[in-house]
Design a protein around this nucleic acid. Sequence first.
DNA 1: ACAGTCACAGAAAACCTTTTCGGTATTTTC
DNA 2: GAAAATACCGAAAAGGTTTTCTGTGACTGT
Lengths: 343, 343
Amino acid sequence: MATSNPGFDGRRAATLRDVAALAGVSIATASKALNGRDQVHPETRERVIAAAAKVAFRPNPMAQGLLRGQTGTVGLLTDDLVGRFSLPILMGAEDEFGSGSVSVFLADARGDAIRQRHHLHAFLDRRVDGLIAVASNTDPRATLGRELPIPVIYAYGPSLDPDDTSLVPDNVSAGEIAVEHLVTTGRRHLALISGDEAYLAARDRTEGVQRAVAAAGLSLVEQVMYGSWSEAWGRTATRALVDRVPELDGIICASDQIARGSLDALRDLGVPVPERVAVLGFDNWEAVVADSRPPLTSVDMNFEALGRAAARRLTQAMSGERHAGGVEKLPVRLVARASTARV
Amino acid sequence: MATSNPGFDGRRAATLRDVAALAGVSIATASKALNGRDQVHPETRERVIAAAAKVAFRPNPMAQGLLRGQTGTVGLLTDDLVGRFSLPILMGAEDEFGSGSVSVFLADARGDAIRQRHHLHAFLDRRVDGLIAVASNTDPRATLGRELPIPVIYAYGPSLDPDDTSLVPDNVSAGEIAVEHLVTTGRRHLALISGDEAYLAARDRTEGVQRAVAAAGLSLVEQVMYGSWSEAWGRTATRALVDRVPELDGIICASDQIARGSLDALRDLGVPVPERVAVLGFDNWEAVVADSRPPLTSVDMNFEALGRAAARRLTQAMSGERHAGGVEKLPVRLVARASTARV
DNA sequence: ACAGTCACAGAAAACCTTTTCGGTATTTTC
DNA sequence: GAAAATACCGAAAAGGTTTTCTGTGACTGT
């Protein structure tokens, strides 16, 4: 039945007016029928629904937004899309929102303050209903503003303003978990090759390691070694370590890349992993842990879950729940692989 | 001078009505004043502008959009946010749009057809002005739809429909460039360790390599070896190669990861790089090339430029320019590092 | 038969901005 | 000094939807 719809040419997107005309009712009735309001005869409702289906009617979100003062959008403002840390957070948030009816705007400030302000204002101009700010590292960062008209959740890097709500991975706990795992699997002579001391993540993980070592009644076989996050640093530090500490049986590396370097050095030196020394990293970076020899045990920071949590928190805040603010630390988890297998 | 603005409480975002009232003019005049229309006395215009500044007026994009039938937004629909290939494309596109006044929606289909349709319709419902579809690999993919009401640019993986416009990296040329570089730096006995043959990228790069080898009047010292994209494959293939072909002096690996494995195997075997054998990869993946020993020469697929180009093409299409459609291949570039240094 | 309910439909306002058009005062032209 | 042009401003409509309020006809109970 290919009847033509008078007044509707099919090129332009159908409006409620088209639906109403086709169903022979007023615009008001059509709206009520489609939105499940009562005050509409069942038969009329069906006619409207059929008409809407026929012209593929989809309400114009701009008209809806104009009316109810909400856009159904949120902004994701990242400092650093390149770095692989913020990405899973974005993914988690995007997924959590996207499966609902919220659409997400993405903007990358690239670590530039000007750009950040630009994008923040672009978001505000667009009337996003909320905002997630994802930093490029876990160091505390300046707030985006104290009197913003919309709720903001800071993810990864917490806001310096205690009134803001921040969600961060628990790096201290990550350090503890690492030690507990090694101790559980029978290691007693542990060393820590940390990362760049300028990063809070490095210091936090170190703190966790030291706490857990003390709690286990042990002490590190060597002073904590700070350096960079690179494989090269992992190699140098490991060589020095093996030289100085013959009884060494477990190396905690503050990143997967460092651990990768450590593994390489140990292989060069002929030290078998995990038979003589266990090696463990942080971040659980798939590309690194899977291809290393042997596969690397690593502490996963649960970034995707963090993104999801941020999205849920934002959703709550947008629906009016007031929160005290502050920094919440989210749990991390250890992924065991061959590099720390019990011997 | 903290005078209160009658009728404007500061909580709600200021509207043109507030500005007009504050400046003592009509809404129409206020609009014209702010939009640089003539028919406004210079002095009046100044008053309006001052009023707008005072209440921090920003036009409501929903009202504007409703009127002009455009939203000033585009959708970025990716198949795979995790994979590191689509990300730089997104970055390029985001940057190109974001520096203008276009905002970008992001959605990740995660390789799932249902999810893809869901997000496509979410975008259409939001009335985005255009769409960029980023695939997870270079294999041709199904079109998103033949009769979409907005322009669509396919990036990375081209659409199977020849009427669609697709932008892809030139993998054949990438293969050629790799060979030319090795030949130029004095290598004559080349082998190719390719990737997973199921991927068009692997076959295209292989084709380019073979063409360029022939063009140089040479031939590969071994049949093309297909395998996987992993370091492990790079190691096995390299060991076999070194075993069988003593005169070998250049290995082309179809990805940086394969190359990384190859370098590891060569070091294990005591074959010096680049002194005896040059090694070269594809993708220029920072984390891999920088930390490998020696640093790895690699063919960069220029993904960010591809994203920018896609954004520009979409902008053209949105402003009405008709394009013939088809697949356009974008140039790639070689980044030389120590692993292929001339001896 | 009549007041009072009830079920349903539609008119109109509201959201905010832009543009067209008409109107009023002022200036220019001969 | 009259006629025409100019400069400026505001009213109103348009864009698409939702909601409130009013209206109408049918039904209930006595």
